[in-house]
């Protein structure tokens, strides 16, 4: 789950540890996205990115902790929290 990312200001870079394994539920886009970007600005993890071409938001499940702020704040209730598929034993 660890990848080294070259940092913008330091040569050594940074090693973000993906926290997706914390989530018990994950957000999915079920309804029509109006591209208001409320979910994007309110996501504490920055796990939501913008798809400018298709005018929808994308979720990064590797970084999403499943807090559910995006689904709660979505004005059109287009985002729903769904149970993730069971993970395989490690």
């Amino acid at each position: 789950m660890r990848e080294k990312v070259p940092g913008p200001t330091s040569k050594a870079g940074s090693i973000p540890t993906k926290m997706g394994s914390w989530s018990t539920v994950k957000p999915v886009l079920k309804g029509r996205c109006t591209f208001c970007l409320f979910c994007w600005i309110f996501c504490p993890e920055g796990a939501i990115s913008q798809d400018e071409a298709n005018k929808v938001v994308l979720f990064n499940y590797e970084e999403c902790k499943g807090c559910g702020i995006c689904a709660h704040e979505c004005p059109t209730k287009a985002i729903k929290m769904a149970e993730p598929e069971p993970r395989g034993g490690e």
């Binding site: 540890t17 926290m19 504490p44 559910g68």
Partner: peptide, 9 residues
Amino acid sequence: YRCSYGCAG
């Protein structure tokens, strides 16, 4: 600022 150990929410 990505991938912190902060609580969900």
